[in-house]
């Protein structure tokens, strides 16, 4: 089940405080520890009663599930309690696990980058969501698969965003296409031309962070997409929206707004390693389902991995299971 316990050190971020090297599964579990702790405590009670359900509601709300998803989960659970004559909290627990599995499973659709060369990935998101950092991790991820990667520094707005990507590219031996200033669409166009010329497998196009309320910026990103289509009629092959797991219910709004502007085809959920989180996935599954391509639980380069619903739910519920 946990297919990738590779040991890697954080060679790429030399200054990052060294964390004990754990397997991915364990790191994921550690990240979701708080939510799990709250969930676990609930089911040690003697019987299923109103109080238990109420506390479950609170727990789900506090994990950022949002009102809609929380109420849906509770209604479903209640109807199962009736239908399947569930009596013990343990049964309720497995019903909840099933329910979450079923809810999240449709989101598990790993990214296949073999469908086209070069495979053009456009990255979008709000300010400070972790776009540029995620691009670094993705580039490394594809590189390990033996792919040739090219980065396009499409964030021409934020101070030093270009430098951030270039520093990163230098350290990891990945070429970065950047311009002194100017139009992000032009940078991306250049990058695609370069990718065609150099026989690149994957192009990762960074864009500046923007809030969905800034309409002119949303128009700008739509333009970047159109320009990509001009350079490569089949592209972009993937439009990834980077979501910060710390964000509350606005995450749903963000998915909707970016989807409207550029047609989001996949999500990256970053910063899941805070304390009490993960519920936002349920909210997204209910209100605006999009494939979750990757989730990130830390600063290390390997802390970004493909999303697996079963693994995620297991991490929410099981404290010690052996891989």
């Amino acid at each position: 089940m946990f297919g990738f316990e590779k040991k890697k050190n954080n060679e790429d971020t030399p200054n990052a405080p060294v964390v004990a090297q754990l397997s991915w599964g364990e790191r994921l579990k550690k990240s979701l520890a708080k939510t799990r702790g709250q969930l676990g405590g609930l089911f040690h009670r003697a019987k299923i009663d109103e109080e238990l359900l109420e506390d479950l509601e609170s727990t789900l709300l506090m994990a950022d599930c949002g009102i809609e998803a929380t109420q849906w989960l509770l209604e479903e659970l209640k109807s199962r309690v009736k239908k399947d004559r569930l009596e013990t909290p343990t049964q309720l627990r497995s019903a909840l696990i099933d329910l979450l599995q079923a809810l999240l499973a449709p989101l598990e659709r790993p990214l296949n980058i073999a469908s086209h060369t070069p495979f053009i990935i456009m990255i979008a998101g709000v300010n400070g969501g972790g776009k540029t950092t995620s691009i670094g991790k993705l580039a490394k991820h594809f590189q390990k698969q033996g792919k040739k990667v090219l980065l396009a520094a499409g964030d021409t707005f934020r101070a030093a965003a270009r430098e951030q990507l270039m520093v990163w590219g230098e350290r990891n031996d990945v070429s970065v296409i950047a311009q002194e200033s100017g139009d992000p669409a032009a940078v991306v166009f250049d990058a695609i031309s370069a990718a065609n010329a150099r026989g690149i497998d994957v192009v990762l196009a960074d864009t500046a962070g923007r809030l969905p309320t800034q309409l002119h910026l949303m128009e700008e990103i739509a333009k970047i997409k159109r320009v990509i289509q001009k350079a490569e009629p089949t592209g972009p092959h993937e439009v990834l929206l980077v979501l910060d797991a710390n964000i509350g219910q606005n995450a749903v709004q963000q998915v909707k707004a970016f989807d409207k502007a550029v047609g989001v085809t996949g999500l990256i959920i970053t910063k899941l390693d805070g304390t009490a989180k993960g519920g936002v996935l349920a909210a997204i599954a209910r209100q605006c389902p999009k494939p979750v391509r990757y989730i990130g639980v830390g600063e290390g380069i390997d802390d970004l991995q493909a999303f697996r619903a079963s693994e995620f739910v297991a991490a929410l519920f099981e404290a010690h299971d052996t891989p």
């Binding site: 708080k34 300010n127 400070g128 969905p212 509350g248 606005n250 805070g274």
Partner: peptide
Amino acid sequence: GQDAVNTAKAFNDALPLTGIVLTKLDGDA
């Protein structure tokens, strides 16, 4: 989101904060 309380508490415990600056208020949250 909900985690704001935990984060704020941890920072407040670690540092004698004197004030808070709220950012990205131009969004639709």
